[in-house]
Amino acid sequence: MALYSEKVMDHFTNPRNVGKLDDADGIGEVGNARCGDIMKIYIKVKDGIITDVKFNTFGCGSAIASSSMATEMIKGKPISEALTLTNKAVAEALDGLPAHKMHCSVLAEEAIRAAIKDYYDKNGIAYDPAEFPEPDEHE
């Protein structure tokens, strides 16, 4: 058995939405280089809909695949829906991740939330801070 599912390998070798948005409405960056993964997600928002999304990721195969899948899952969706995206849903959409790689899907969920929070902050949109806890420091 291979380390990763075919879905993971597909999203790793042909990542969707890779790149940057120079006119992004929100940018979220999580992770740290010391631990070996950083995810940066850019979103473009219009009328509460995420009209475009791009990512840059420094990390292993599953980190890149998780970024790719997560961006696919929120593209064209209302922010309210993007906020309900869980790391588990990302991992499931990838046909599973090895146990020690689940944290990659957590990063993807956190990066999206961070980008949305950034969008709220930049546009003076009120939100409940409890909804946006500080991402865990990955040791």
Partner: peptide
């Protein structure tokens, strides 16, 4: 990051190793 490098090398037929986490 080393693992992604290894996986892409493998897709090119090159079997190597890395000290990445």
């Amino acid at each position: 990051e080393g693992e992604s490098l290894l996986l892409l090398l493998d897709s090119k037929g090159i079997c190597a190793s890395s000290g990445s986490a």
